[in-house]
Design a protein around this nucleic acid. Structure first.
Length: 225
DNA sequence: TAAATGATACACT
DNA sequence: GTGTATCATTTAC
């Protein structure tokens, strides 16, 4: 067992029981694997977002599914760190989170994008519409589809077979951060810069400004690569 | 620029 | 119980 300087020798689950906002940049470069009957697909995370639960009264997060407390759907987010929280949205897409924080708290990291590092063929097969390798997991729903994850996988342990999570031995650099994508401004949830990505990585999801009249990306508000 | 598509949560009988 | 607004999005026109 080599001691990973990133976790200072802590067991992975204990490491993930920390603050999601601090864990987010450290999980960039980590590799998540899903070994299904069809084969294994591994994705190297290049973009994540932190979501907090209601227990953090200093940072109310209306953008989080757990803002109004536990429900059957979000139950896994209140569970132990290292488990998956997968939900179905827009009537056709799945999104994947890795639960963080101690059991009883409800924070998680939304996996927004990654690079397929193993099982490219299978990932491409699942993602019938996209062509280029960089597009296979470029976006949260694309990433979930490439890994073959659905709500049936919600609550399962990402640290045990058929899943696996391997951290990089050192933090990814350089890392950028900015406001989260797709969260409503209600309650000021859009002011949190809890989206982290590997600067310049081609697999980071495209930020589509909601209504960029003038179409000139302002450096202060441009959140892409 | 907009359509697709259904689970979820909440207000209300 | 029913009705309805709201999506942590992607893709095609």
């Amino acid at each position: 067992m080599s001691r990973n300087p990133l976790t200072a020798g802590q067991p992975l689950r204990e490491f993930l029981s920390g603050d999601a906002r601090q864990l987010a940049p450290l999980l960039l470069g980590a590799v998540l694997t899903h070994d299904s009957r069809d084969g294994a697909v591994s994705v190297r995370l290049t973009e994540v977002e932190a979501y907090l639960g209601p227990e953090d009264s200093l940072h109310p997060d209306p953008g989080s599914h757990t803002y109004r407390g536990p429900t059957p759907r979000n139950a896994p987010m209140f569970g132990p760190a290292g488990h998956l929280y997968v939900y179905f949205t827009y009537g056709m897409h799945h999104c994947t989170n890795i639960v963080c924080g101690p059991e009883g708290t409800a924070s998680a990291l939304l996996l927004r994008a990654g690079e397929i590092v193993d099982g490219v063929e299978l990932a491409r097969h699942r993602r019938t519409t996209s062509k280029s390798p960089a597009d296979l997991a470029r976006g949260p729903a694309r990433l979930a589809k490439a890994l073959g994850l659905t709500t049936a996988d919600s609550g399962r342990d990402a640290l045990a077979p058929p899943f696996g999570l391997v951290l990089p031995s050192r933090p990814a650099v350089p890392v950028s951060s900015g406001p989260r994508v797709g969260v409503s401004g209600a309650g000021g949830a859009d002011r949190y810069a809890w989206r982290f990505w590997i600067t310049g990585d081609p697999t980071v999801s495209q930020y589509k400004p909601a209504k960029p009249r003038g179409a000139k990306p302002d450096p202060a508000t441009f959140h892409g690569r």
